[in-house]
Nucleic acid binder design. Structure first.
Lengths: 228, 228
DNA sequence: AGGATGCCTAACCTATCGGTCAAGGTTTAA
DNA sequence: TTAAACCTTGACCGATAGGTTAGGCATCCT
């Protein structure tokens, strides 16, 4: 059943980038600028970051930035793309061999690990989407696509597991997925805002396992480990 | 057991306000300015809003703003206070007569209704805390106090309910409160980001009721209604 | 050789930013 | 009546914002 590449859509990203192949020497400075800009935008946001700062940080003249990117906004969009890259992974690929239960658990674990490991950019995107709709139209769309892609995977997997009778079925797959996502987002919020929150993905995975598959706590822990 | 006013701390707010009683004529213009500034800051954020804009929106000269507030930052803090006011309510007062179960359910309902009715400022505070730590130090503290006040109420109520034997007790009150808060925050996220999310507080309350008190769905619905 | 093109900079431009100032009108109170 | 305190303004200030321009120095093609 080759519904491949649920989450792999690295192409066709935010509008307004489409950077053609330039010469090699320009690529270096362009990268330096992008690196600096990413750093600054992510830590301070769009309006709080000036082009002069970016230029200084990238050790480049301000005019060069405007040679690479027509406007500040275009630079910002390029940065968004850069930050967004790790969000697109090919999940189906790496978990094709697992049964539904382990795929679900892996998916849950993945969400939390991702938030933990990319806390900075997650925080940035959240703030960006809460504020400044204008600049984030494409971004919001993009992230919503990711989000509903993730949700659909969950729904699909739970549905399959239910049909095979290996999963609790006192609810629709949609409701179950919605519930899990709510819980995950709750954990995310806690992690992003409470400095000392530990955010233990293992215990979350174990709770989902108990809830969906009535696994004992011991079983659940082992299930996580078994995924390598 | 008079642990009064869990959430009532309207006094002692953000540093740097302390507005002495001015004459009456000044109060009007001050309010106009605050109203305009609140509007603008909440929709665009601090750096994206200029004093000239505020002046124009309030139909007042820019200099007058600086007569009322020494700096832009001071104006911003005053706005934060204004936005924060509805967050401080005296919950203990209004629910003293209810038993634990209904207090808990009321508390859960309150959280969701509040987020729904103050979506704009919630969104604003969230964005503000995700970005711009500098300006939000006091704010973050303040909100954390509110948040942990809320959590403590939950913990306390669940604990009492457990001791009276009217509440499921396969977990510590702290864990239960943490779980409920995660769920609530998950719903909040969904509501803030998904335009069409319905965010039905009743069904959430009913789920908590079923979970904590093993109430049937029918009972739970009635319990909510019974609170007036 | 020599122009076309690509990469890069110092200097500059205008608009707007947060903030000040000197002065004028209005109350209040002696 | 008059002076002090309060309220309000237009004009102004230096700094910095995003963005432009003219030109220098490579490199490549012919």
């Amino acid at each position: 059943m080759p519904r491949d590449h649920f989450l792999s859509m690295v192409g066709s990203q935010l509008k307004g980038q489409s950077q053609e192949s330039h010469g090699q020497q320009s690529q270096d400075s362009r990268d330096e600028i992008l690196k600096a800009a990413t750093q600054l935008f992510a830590n301070r946001g769009f309006h709080e970051t000036s082009m002069s700062e970016v230029a200084r940080e990238a050790r480049v003249s301000k005019a060069l930035i405007f040679w690479h990117f027509k406007t500040k906004e275009e630079l910002f969009l390029a940065v968004l793309n850069r930050l967004l890259e790790p969000y697109f992974i090919d999940f189906a690929e790496e978990s094709r061999m697992l049964d539904e239960r382990h795929q679900i658990l892996r998916l849950v674990e993945f969400y939390l690990l991702f938030v933990r490991d990319h806390a900075n950019s997650v925080r940035f995107f959240l703030a960006q989407m809460l504020r400044e709709q204008r600049l984030s139209e494409g971004l919001g769309e993009q992230i919503m696509r990711l989000y509903s892609g993730y949700r659909n995977m969950l729904v699909e997997l739970i549905s399959r597991a239910q049909h095979r009778g290996v999963c609790a079925s006192g609810f629709t797959p949609e409701d179950a997925a919605g519930f899990i996502l709510s819980a995950l987002n709750g954990l995310m919020i806690e992690f992003l805002f409470m400095p000392r929150a530990t955010m233990n993905p293992e215990s979350a995975v174990s709770m989902v396992d108990q809830w969906l598959f009535h696994a004992s706590e011991r079983e659940a822990t082992e299930a996580v480990k078994a995924e390598h």
